[in-house]
Design a protein around this nucleic acid. Structure first.
Length: 627
DNA sequence: CTAGGGTTAG
C-alpha cells in the first residue's frame, strides 16, 4: 500500500517561478522511516533547497502518524546530516512534536533553534492552539508581545483567538480582541472571522453580530461563521435568514454553510425544510461531500427516517469512521441493535478504523436492544483489539446495558471496580435501572451520588423521593422534598410536538392553548375511553405521595404526548406514520397508551423521546418495552 | 521564495 503525496519543489535557480506541484509515492509509516536511511546524505545537504522535498514529505506524513519515536528518528537524522536549525525543518519538527502531544520535545527543540523567525513562533502558537492548550498558547503569545512586538502578525492573533474560543476563555478572549484593535488588525477579515467565531462560542451573539456588520467586507467564511453562530446559539431561524441573505449577495453555499444549516433545520424540527435543503445540496454539487452527507444522514435518522439515512449512506463512496458512527447512532436511536452489530463488523472488514465515539454508539445500540452478550464482548475487546481506550462514556453504556436488563447488581459491581472516577452519566444509568427494577438500596446510593455531583438538577431529588415513596419510607421522602424547597431550580418543562402543514404544533401538559383545543381534548377523552374498554389500565408512578390518586390520574391523562397524539389522530394524514417529538423521556403510561392506540386506530405511531425512537404498530413497540 | 491561519460532520 502506497500513499499519494503532494510535495512542492523549488529548483536552486527557479525560486522566482511558481512552485511545481507533483506527486511522489511514499509508503506509510513505519516503512517510511526505513526509507529515510536510503536517502543519500548528499541529497540532504544541498543547502540551496530550503528544504529537501522528500524530507518535507516525510515530515508531512509524520504529522498524521501517531508515533513520537518516528519523529525522533527523523530528528536525529536531520541533526546528523543537515543544519535543521535553519528555519523550515525545525518549524516542521516542532509542530510534529506538538501534534503528538510531546511538549517537552517540542520546547527543547524550539529552544535550540537559533534562527527563529516569526513563522517559527507562529508554528509554536498554532501547535498549542490546535491541541487546545490555552495556557501555553497564551504564554508564548505574551513572550512574542513583550520580546518581539513588531513580528506579531494576524496569523498569531488568529491562532490565539481560536484557542480562547475552544477553551471558552471569555476574559482572555476579550483581551485579545482589544490587542487586535490596538495592533490595527481590528478590520482584517480573517481576524474578525476568528473573533465572530469566538464570541459565538461564548454565547455573545450580539458581539458577533456587531462585528459581522461592522467589517468592511464579508467573505464566504464570515457568512458561514454567522450561520454557525446562530445555529450554535439556538436561533435556527436566523441561520436560515443569513443563508438566504448570502444567496441574495450572490454567494453559493459550500460544505461549511450546509453543515451548519442542516443543524439549524434539526433545531427547527421542520422535516420539510430538510428535504428542501437536500435539494439545495444536489444543485450545489455537495451530495458527494462526505461531511455534508454525514450530517444529512444523521439528521434523517434523528427525524425518524432511518431508511433515508440508509440511502444517503449508500451514496457515499468511501465512508469513514464518522459516517460509520453516525449510522450506528441511528441504529441505536431506533433500537436496531442486531443491524448495528452487523453494520459495524462489515465496516471494520472494509477497513474503517473505529474510535472511542464509534464504540460509545455501538455499545448504546447493544444496550437499547438488550444485546448483553454482544455488548460485553465489545466492551472487553475494544482496547485490546481496536486499541481504543475505555472511557467514562463506555462505562455509562455498560452500566445502562446491564442495569436495563435487570442485572442491577452487576452494574453496581462494575462501577465499584472501574478504574475511573464515575461521573453523573454512570450514576444516572444506574439510577434509571434501579427505578425500572425497583432496587431501593442501590438506587438510593446512585441518587445520593448524583445529588452530590450535581446539586442543581431537580430530577435527582425527585427520583430519590420517588424511590423512598415506593418503599413506603414516607419520612425520608418528605425530608428530600423539604430539602428541594430550600433550593431554587430552573424547571425543564416537558413538551411534545408534531410537524403538520408546514407548522410545528407544540403542546405542554394540560394544554388548552391550541385553536382547536376543544376538539383535541374531546378526541383525547374518546381515545382514553376506548382503550380502557379493550383493557388499558393507567399506571401512575408514585410521583408525589401527598397528591391524591384522582389528581395524579388527571395529570397523567393530560401529558403533552397524549394531547399531541389526539391532535395527530384528528389532523394528520392517516396513510403516513404519526411522528411525535418529545423533549423528555416518555412515561410508562404514555408508552402503553400509544401501544393501545396503534392497535385500535390501526396506525403507525412514532414517538421520539430524549433517548430514542419508539415505533408503535399493532399494539407493540419496536423497543420491545426495553427502555 | 515557502512554511504559520479563520467556518463545518459522528
Amino acid at each position: 500500500m502506497f500513499r499519494l503525496f503532494h510535495a512542492k519543489i523549488l529548483g536552486p535557480k527557479l525560486h522566482r517561478l511558481k512552485p511545481i506541484t507533483f506527486q511522489i509515492m511514499l509508503p506509510p509509516f513505519p516503512e517510511c522511516c526505513s526509507l529515510l536511511f536510503e536517502i543519500s546524505p548528499r541529497s540532504l545537504s544541498i543547502s540551496s533547497y530550503r528544504c529537501d522535498p522528500l524530507l518535507s514529505s516525510l515530515l508531512l506524513t509524520l504529522k498524521s502518524s501517531s508515533s513520537v519515536s518516528c519523529c525522533r528518528v527523523i530528528h536525529a537524522r536531520v541533526v546528523k546530516s543537515l543544519d535543521y536549525r535553519d528555519g523550515f525543518i525545525g518549524d516542521q519538527l516542532v509542530s510534529c512534536y506538538l501534534n503528538k502531544r510531546s511538549i517537552p520535545d517540542a520546547q527543547k527543540l524550539f529552544g535550540e533553534m537559533p534562527h527563529k523567525d516569526f513563522v517559527s513562533w507562529n508554528s509554536l502558537v498554532s501547535g498549542f492552539s490546535k491541541r487546545g492548550d490555552l495556557c501555553n498558547c497564551l504564554s508564548v503569545f505574551s513572550t512574542i508581545r513583550s520580546e518581539m512586538a513588531l513580528e506579531l502578525n494576524e496569523l498569531t492573533m488568529i491562532s490565539v483567538i481560536s484557542a480562547c474560543a475552544s477553551a471558552k476563555a471569555r476574559d482572555e478572549g476579550c483581551y485579545l480582541h482589544c490587542c487586535a484593535v490596538k495592533l490595527g488588525m481590528g478590520l482584517e477579515v480573517k481576524v474578525v472571522n476568528a473573533l465572530i467565531n469566538m464570541y459565538g462560542k461564548f454565547g455573545c451573539v450580539d458581539s458577533a453580530f456587531k462585528l459581522f456588520w461592522a467589517m468592511p467586507e464579508q467573505n464566504m467564511v464570515s457568512w458561514n461563521s454567522m450561520v454557525a453562530v446562530w445555529t450554535q446559539n439556538g436561533i435556527p431561524n436566523e441561520a436560515v435568514n443569513y443563508f438566504n441573505m448570502m444567496r441574495v449577495n450572490g454567494l453559493f453555499p459550500d460544505e461549511a454553510t450546509m453543515v451548519s444549516l442542516l443543524q439549524a433545520c434539526e433545531n427547527l424540527h421542520l422535516g420539510r425544510l430538510v428535504e428542501a435543503m437536500h435539494g439545495v445540496i444536489f444543485t450545489c454539487g455537495l451530495n458527494e461531500n462526505i461531511t455534508v452527507a454525514t450530517t444529512l444522514l444523521n439528521l434523517y435518522s434523528k427525524l425518524g427516517k432511518l431508511s433515508v439515512s440508509h440511502k444517503v449512506f449508500a451514496e457515499i463512496s468511501k465512508p469513514d469512521k464518522v459516517t460509520l458512527t453516525a449510522m450506528l447512532a441511528g441504529y441505536a436511536m431506533h433500537g436496531r441493535g442486531k443491524e448495528a452489530v452487523e453494520f459495524f463488523e462489515r465496516s471494520v472488514r472494509e477497513g474503517v478504523e473505529p474510535d472511542h465515539v464509534t464504540f460509545t454508539h455501538l455499545l448504546s445500540a447493544c444496550s437499547h436492544s438488550g444485546l448483553v452478550r454482544e455488548g460485553k464482548y465489545y466492551f472487553l475487546i475494544m482496547s485490546e483489539v481496536y486499541k481504543v481506550q475505555t472511557q467514562l462514556d463506555h462505562y455509562s453504556c455498560m452500566v445502562d446495558l446491564l442495569g436495563r436488563c435487570g442485572l442491577v447488581n452487576d452494574a453496581h459491581q462494575l462501577i465499584k471496580n472501574m478504574p475511573l472516577e464515575p461521573n453523573s452519566g454512570v450514576w444516572g444509568a444506574l439510577l434509571g435501572a434501579c427505578r425500572v427494577h425497583r432496587n431501593i438500596d442501590i438506587g438510593k446510593e446512585a441518587a445520593e451520588n448524583l445529588i452530590a455531583l450535581n446539586p442543581s438538577d431537580p430530577r435527582n431529588y425527585i427520583m430519590l423521593s420517588n424511590i423512598y415513596s415506593a418503599a413506603g419510607m414516607w419520612n425520608d421522602a418528605s425530608k428530600v422534598r423539604a430539602l428541594m424547597k430550600t433550593k431554587v431550580f430552573t424547571r425543564n418543562p416537558g413538551y411534545s410536538f408534531i410537524e403538520h402543514g408546514n407548522k410545528i404544533h407544540l403542546f405542554v401538559v394540560d394544554d388548552y392553548s391550541h385553536p382547536d383545543s376543544d376538539k383535541i381534548h374531546k378526541k383525547l377523552e374518546e381515545i382514553m375511553r376506548r382503550i380502557q374498554e379493550v383493557g388499558f389500565v393507567s399506571e401512575t408512578e408514585p410521583i408525589l405521595h401527598d397528591v391524591d390518586v384522582e389528581v395524579k390520574t388527571y395529570m397523567i391523562n393530560k401529558h403533552s404526548e397524549k394531547i399531541a397524539l389526539a391532535f395527530g389522530l384528528l389532523d394528520c394524514n392517516a396513510d403516513k406514520p404519526l411522528v411525535i417529538i418529545k423533549n423528555l423521556r416518555i412515561c410508562r403510561d404514555c408508552h402503553n397508551t400509544a401501544k393501545f392506540v396503534s392497535l385500535i386506530e390501526k396506525r403507525t405511531i412514532i414517538i421520539r423521546d430524549s433517548k430514542r425512537f419508539h415505533h408503535f404498530s399493532d399494539g407493540l413497540c419496536s423497543c420491545g418495552d426495553y427502555w
